[in-house]
Design a protein around this nucleic acid. Structure first.
Lengths: 134, 134
DNA sequence: ATAATTGCAAACAATTTGCATTCAG
DNA sequence: CTGAATGCAAATTGTTTGCAATTAT
């Protein structure tokens, strides 16, 4: 466990959820020399070791967090906000898919997409289309 | 509706599921001059018109299909295979999320990730790691 | 000294943008 | 003639690779 690896892990823990770029920025605040390549390589390593996981929030960069920090992500495609729900909300679905399709669901790897409470209300006129794409 | 737009739409319909690159390749087979930029712009337009939709299969390029072609995608992160399930498998979940979180689920925009029947069996030794990443 | 790790530059893939050209009304 | 649509090259973003310099064992 090299110093830069420790820094990457620290950043992941501290940020809770972050893209490789954000993690890199955080690491570089204390150790400016650390290259983003190293961040990618380290994240890859930590993931294979099972200490971090990544989730696809639908588009762009993936989102890394420590392994224990496990939940389902609900991303709003109007405002881009990301909510979290306990993994148990997918338990029933997981059972269904296992039974009917033999598919072993990994509840946390991809986010669910839709409209959050606020945006669902104002369908036509989203309050603040900060990240309305995707 | 210009000729190239029609070609793009034809390709989407014909391919059922395809990335912008694949769509472009198909279009270019009949009209080699068509630029990938136009494909992107057209897909964007067709999507805003509600005639096509795109789905994120977890990584890489999104997957376009005609709007009516609606189902839930199950991608295996061992072999990369993509299975389909009827949207109804998410009905109960949709109701739950609407009730507990006010979240309006869009069942088709993101794929569910996990292990397909074959790979689930041979966990440790996936048959053919054609696309084992992600 | 021997292998693993790092930094850096360059390669890549996917996508977007600027702009001059072409096309249709 | 005027605005929309297209093609092309270049810029962007996210990520990976080759390789030489560095570090740990």
């Amino acid at each position: 466990m090299t110093p830069q690896r420790q820094l990457v892990l620290d950043a992941v823990e501290q940020l809770e959820h972050a893209t490789p770029e954000q993690i890199c920025a955080t690491v570089q605040r204390v150790a400016p020399a650390v290259n983003i390549t190293t961040v990618y390589r380290t994240l890859d390593l930590l993931e294979r070791l099972g200490v971090v996981r990544h989730t696809h929030l639908g588009h762009g960069a993936p989102n890394y967090s420590v392994r224990e920090h496990e939940h389902v992500h609900l991303v709003c495609h109007w405002c881009g906000k990301v909510a979290e729900a306990p993994v148990e909300v997918l338990d029933a679905l997981g059972r269904d898919l296992a039974g009917e399709h033999g598919f072993q669901l990994d509840a946390t790897h991809v986010a669910l997409s839709g409209a959050c409470a606020e945006c669902a209300k104002s369908e036509a006129a989203p309050a603040e289309p900060t990240d309305g794409d995707d």
